[in-house]
């Protein structure tokens, strides 16, 4: 049993974090140069030949930086449906993809192709105004659909979103902690007041629990483990709620500033809610978990394969 990332994976995390701190809005071509687009694409197709755990690290860091490009749509959502030539073009940065889920397409305006149930479609249609402006949803126009080599992998996508939610929650917590150390009222930093600090302690605990679930789900996805479906549902349900709560508490801790358009917090808040709503709200995912856990034969406790 070893539940930690490797040194190389931690190094990737550090690189991603410092790169995004310097450049929160990188060009797509820069992501290709960094090798982030082809992380799990084979070397023969121009990728790095790594796996979902490396991608999980990137989803978390991109969530933390609130990256606005179609990385999640391309890598987190569409990738498993694509054939070799398409994968090669993703790795090189030539093609961006998304997928149609529940009739809506994330980042429709900034991708080239869309995975639909009937096959690949050109990314043409109407972009809808969306609460989270950094990840707008669109509706596809009618048109030709060409068959695809693979299919979407919901567990993988939910695990990706869980990791992204952890990044969002952590950033909201960090912003709040910095603020309450500095801001003085009644002659003391507001972080001494327990009504403030205890909520942040709760955010800390929930973020760590969410992280544990997200990494568990990521591992299950990376290994093709039979628990992947249930782990991913559990992780996305818990982590997205934790991210929403983290943002709400951070906004409250900031007072009036937290309520402004100018402050970054509302954008994290909207991203957290975007994640919460996509491909199953927490309650819907918990219904899936309940069906599974309540099934007669289950003892409710996952059996780690020996």
């Amino acid at each position: 049993m070893n539940f930690s990332f490797t040194d190389e994976q931690e190094q990737l995390r550090q690189e991603a974090r410092s790169f995004l701190a310097r450049k929160p809005e990188p060009q797509w071509s820069e992501l290709a140069e960094l090798g982030w687009l082809g992380v799990s694409i084979s070397e023969a197709l121009g990728g790095a030949g790594l796996g979902f755990l490396e991608e999980a690290v990137l989803f978390e860091e991109l969530g933390r930086a609130l990256y606005a490009g179609p990385y999640f749509a391309t890598v987190g959502l569409a990738l498993p449906a694509l054939g070799e030539e398409q994968l090669a073009r993703v790795a090189s940065g030539e093609e961006r993809w998304s997928a149609e889920i529940d009739g809506l397409v994330p980042d429709l305006a900034t991708v080239d192709w869309v995975v639909t149930e009937a096959g690949a479609a050109r990314a043409e249609g109407e972009t809808l105004s969306t609460m989270d402006e950094t990840r707008q949803l669109g509706r596809l126009a009618d048109g030709d659909r060409t068959p695809l080599a693979g299919s979407l992998d919901r567990s993988r996508t939910l695990a990706a979103l869980a990791c992204e939610a952890v990044g969002v929650a952590q950033q909201a917590l960090d912003l709040a902690v910095e603020y309450v150390k500095d801001r003085q009222q009644f002659g003391r930093p507001i972080g001494v007041y327990q009504a403030v600090s205890h909520r942040l302690a709760d955010t800390y605990v929930e973020t760590e629990l969410a992280r544990s679930l997200a990494y568990w789900a990521a591992w299950c996805v990376a290994e093709g483990d039979e628990q992947a479906r249930i782990a991913a549902a559990a992780a996305k349900a818990f982590a997205s709620e934790a991210a929403v709560a983290a943002c709400e508490r951070a906004i409250q801790a900031h007072g009036g500033i937290g309520f402004t358009w100018e402050h970054v917090l509302h954008r994290y808040y909207k991203r957290a809610q975007w994640i919460e709503a996509f491909w199953g709200f927490p309650a819907a995912l918990r219904a899936e978990v309940a069906d599974w856990a309540m099934e007669g034969a289950r003892d409710g406790v996952p059996v780690r394969v020996a």
Binding site: S212, A234, A293
Partner: peptide
Amino acid sequence: RDRIAREWIELQALKYTNYRSLT
């Protein structure tokens, strides 16, 4: 069923948090 699922999920969260600190 929603409340039951919540208990199951948070049990896993505690368990895997223990694994992380154990590692």
